[in-house]
Simulated scan of single mutants.
Amino acid sequence: MTKPVAIKRRIGRPPKEDSVETSNRIIDTAAQLFAAQGYAATSMEQVASACNAGKDTIYRRFPSKADLFGAVVDRLRAGVLENLENEINTIADSGDALERLRHLAKWFLSVNLRPEMVAFKRIAMSEAVVFGSAGQGQTDKDPIMDRLVGVVEDAQRDGLLCGDNSTVIANHLIHSIVFGPSNHAMLGGKQYDDPAIRDQYFDQAWKLFLHGAGQ
């Protein structure tokens, strides 16, 4: 009689690859639920059910909903940073520094109008206290803005932009070009979904950034 094949049971913690895959699946699911329902309406139980993971599995990785939301936002920002660095590398040898800055400014506008970005910025605005708790321990250092500041400094060094403080200029650029359409989208507006309208707005905002509104 043939002896049954013994099945080896895995004892202890799962391999690192399995753990990473599980964490990514949880974050993917949470991102979809937060974006669709908002922060308050999304529960850890819903996340567990939607991604087919036990609550204990989720809580071992993310002790609270704020921690899970923080992980979702961190990954979103990491993705934006990776995209930005790819964009900078792509345009590194094209045009002068001011043209490269213009390209990145338009890229920032486009990124901030992406549906997932609008959704999470809306949550950040409506759940300011919770969003702040999720970001505890983070420094004020922002690598995304650091990359933009670097391109501003290139334009200054080449005599294409004036001003002494490159950080102030970079922040002014974002305020001048991104905030209006981004806030419009967070309030449910769809005007800038139209590429022609978005491009027209950008061209006007870029000229105002460069030359101001004075006579």
Rank of each mutant, 00 (worst) to 15 (best):
I174R: 09
Q136A: 13
E85Q: 15
Q32E: 09
V73P: 00
V80H: 06
G212H: 03
Q138S: 11
A66E: 15
I144E: 06
G12R: 07
G95E: 12
F179Y: 07
L68E: 07
A71N: 07
E99G: 12
G180H: 10
P195F: 09
I174C: 06
A31E: 04
G189Q: 04
Q138H: 07
T139A: 13
H103Y: 12
L84I: 13
L187Y: 04
N24A: 08
G12P: 08
A170N: 11
R114E: 15
A41P: 02
E99N: 05
H211K: 13
M1H: 02
K55N: 06
F108A: 14
D93F: 11
D193N: 09
I177H: 09
K16E: 15
G189D: 12
V80T: 09
T167G: 15
N89A: 15
F179A: 03
I88Q: 10
S126N: 14
A30H: 01
V73K: 03
F120C: 01
C162T: 13
G150M: 03
T29I: 00
I26W: 01
V151P: 04
R13Y: 02
E153D: 13
S64A: 14
A119M: 02
F120E: 04
A92W: 01
I144D: 07
R122S: 13
K55W: 00
L104Q: 12
I197H: 02
R9F: 03
V152M: 03
V151S: 06
R25S: 07
M1L: 01
T90C: 08
A105V: 09
M186H: 04
L148H: 12
D164L: 03
P15F: 07
S133I: 02
V5C: 02
G54D: 15
R61T: 03
G95I: 06
G212I: 05
F131T: 12
V149M: 06
E87W: 03
D164T: 11
I91S: 14
R77N: 10
M44A: 07
Q191C: 04
A213C: 01
S23V: 05
W107A: 15
A155Y: 05
A41H: 09
E45Y: 02
D74N: 06
